[in-house]
């Protein structure tokens, strides 16, 4: 569904992504692995259309990244990004205003499950709560491709379980999920494909089970070997 070739992003004085070529397939859950600063975020932002590549191409369903791809792709950044004047409720309204695939009922349900209040002001939420809000808003979209940047960061264990459940509920034969993380062990059982990124390059990628069999190692062990 998505094909990237020789992606490169150079900022003024540093190279964020050196060379990433990979294909994402429908119906899979990918772990995008790598330590902080390895280029995971920049890669996701290029797919979501927030960052323009310096070099290389991205094709989503045969089209370049643009208005159409943004309709289908739901990106969730690590940091909170909602307007500070918003409430939990108006975040939902905003999503409803702009994303055709946004499911209001699902949002209400998720907000309840995450124990958030519709009337809460966005800028008064604790970091854990705003992380939950981000997940709720993003996962309430029935997107074709979800890009979740460190969805478990700064979240307690109970909430992590809820988030993983939410992600698994969104998984289906025609949706693809990419989860970037440096907490591999939490997600080892959830994912079926992996992409290891090191210094802005995709070093290993493919089916998780196959990689485990070929290398005789779990993904966690492989992670330690690659970045240790």
């Amino acid at each position: 569904m998505l094909e990237c070739s020789n992606l490169k992003k150079v900022y003024l004085n540093k190279t964020a992504v050196e060379d990433i070529s990979l294909t994402l397939e429908k119906g899979r859950i990918y772990a995008l692995l790598g330590p902080n600063g390895s280029g995971k975020t920049t890669f996701m932002k290029m797919i979501s259309g927030l960052v323009k590549p310096t070099h290389g191409t991205i094709e989503y369903e045969g089209m370049p990244i643009g208005v159409q791809s943004k309709k289908d792709i739901a990106y969730m950044s690590t940091e909170p990004f909602f307007y500070s004047f918003m409430t939990v409720e108006s975040v939902g309204k905003y999503y409803k205003d702009f994303f055709e695939d946004f499911d209001e009922d699902k949002y209400v349900k998720l907000i309840g499950e995450m124990e958030l209040n519709m009337k809460d002001k966005v800028n008064k939420l604790s970091s854990g709560m705003s992380a939950k809000l981000k997940i709720a808003a993003t996962m309430a979209r029935n997107a074709k491709l979800y890009l979740l940047d460190e969805p478990l960061n700064g979240i307690d264990i109970i909430a992590r379980e809820k988030i993983i459940t939410t992600i698994l509920n969104a998984a289906s034969d025609d949706s693809t999920i990419v989860i970037s993380t440096h907490l591999v062990d939490e997600l080892e059982a959830v994912i079926d494909s992996v992409v290891f990124i090191k210094d802005g390059k995709s070093v290993i990628y493919g089916d998780a089970e196959q990689i485990r069999e070929q290398r005789g190692k779990s993904i966690v062990e492989l992670y330690k070997e690659i970045y240790g």
């Binding site: 119906g27 899979r28 859950i29 379980e161 993983i164 459940t165 698994l168 509920n169 998984a171 289906s172 059982a189 959830v190 994912i191 079926d192 089970e209």
Partner: peptide, 14 residues
Amino acid sequence: TRELAVQYHINPNT
């Protein structure tokens, strides 16, 4: 399959 995935927190394909 999906319920099983959610119950055990495993991948739906698994």
